[in-house]
């Protein structure tokens, strides 16, 4: 059996990210690539971003949280990626699409943690107890894999297809909300592009965070106090281009917006 050239693929992914040049699907060229190796690639690229660009890890994102996307990628659980200081943009920011490859946007609920969450064995109750506040969040995803031709190994290696994220105008105590029923409206250039509700993220956004804490716990890792956790898309993602204005609003939480230039 052919072995996977981890170092070479890490380097390819890092360059694709740096140069905005997509690469052919890893899973196509290396069908033996395992999910564990894909996470290894993700961590390699992350280490290089920290080392060479001084990026700091400020949180995590959970992806593949909807039934539809799980079926598309033929998996039965979500995946995760890392959020770094270089990925954060301010509410209302202008984002240059020239710095991205094939960006898409989605609306989510972000959790800001006030206590560490160390799995396994954590429940929704632990997540709510450890949460300082929840915030509206626009995640801008992008794929360093050509034309989004991704299998689960490709997106995991590519940091769960993450690119940028924007936290919105409000921070709300999750005890005030029925998070599964929080409605989300995504408007693109003033028109409703998609809507969803909290339950789209693994049945309940806090359930997605518990999944992540328990999964990381299996590797001896924890979610840390102060980290931002993006709990998963609440509706289908929408492609964006220069000139687009995008706004999301979340019932009982608040809103966030970005424009693309």
């Amino acid at each position: 059996m052919q072995s996977t050239p981890i170092e070479q693929l890490s380097d390819e992914l890092y360059r694709a990210l740096k140069d905005n040049q997509p690469i052919a699907p890893l899973s196509e060229r290396h069908p033996q690539l395992t999910l564990q190796q894909a996470y290894e690639l993700q961590l390699n690229v992350l280490a290089r971003r920290q080392r060479e660009n001084g990026e700091r890890v400020i949180g995590k994102k959970i992806g593949v949280t909807s039934q539809v996307v799980m079926e598309q990628l033929k998996v039965d659980q979500p995946d995760f990626g890392h959020l770094t200081s270089a990925m954060l943009r301010a509410d209302g920011a202008a984002i240059a699409v020239a710095d991205l490859i094939a960006p898409k946007a989605e609306g989510e609920i972000a959790f800001l943690l006030k206590e560490d969450l160390r799995g396994p064995g954590l429940t929704v109750a632990d997540v709510l107890r450890a949460t300082e506040c929840v915030m509206p969040c626009i995640e801008i995803v992008d794929s360093r894999i050509r034309d989004w031709q991704i299998r689960i190994q490709d997106t995991v290696a590519d940091n769960a297809s993450s690119a940028l994220f924007v936290l919105g105008d409000a921070a709300v105590d999750p005890r005030e909300l029925e998070l599964g029923l929080v409605g989300m409206t995504l408007e693109l250039n003033g028109e409703i592009a998609s809507t969803g509700a909290g339950a789209a993220a693994l049945g309940h956004p806090a359930n997605a965070v518990a999944w992540l804490a328990n999964t990381l716990g299996g590797f001896g890792m924890a979610l840390e106090a102060g980290e931002v956790i993006l709990s998963g898309a609440l509706s289908a993602m929408v492609p964006v281009k220069a000139g687009d204005n995008l706004r999301i609003s979340l019932g009982g939480i608040g809103s966030a917006s970005v424009r693309f230039t």
């Binding site: 409703i192 809507t195 509700a197």
Partner: peptide, 26 residues
């Protein structure tokens, strides 16, 4: 907040649709 009011539909215990009321003419 009728616009952003969330709705979750389940058939036989499985979520089949989620939406906000803005889907109705904004």
């Amino acid at each position: 907040d009728l616009k952003n009011l969330g709705v979750v539909m389940e058939r036989n215990g499985r979520i089949v649709a989620t939406a906000s009321a803005a889907a109705v003419l904004g």
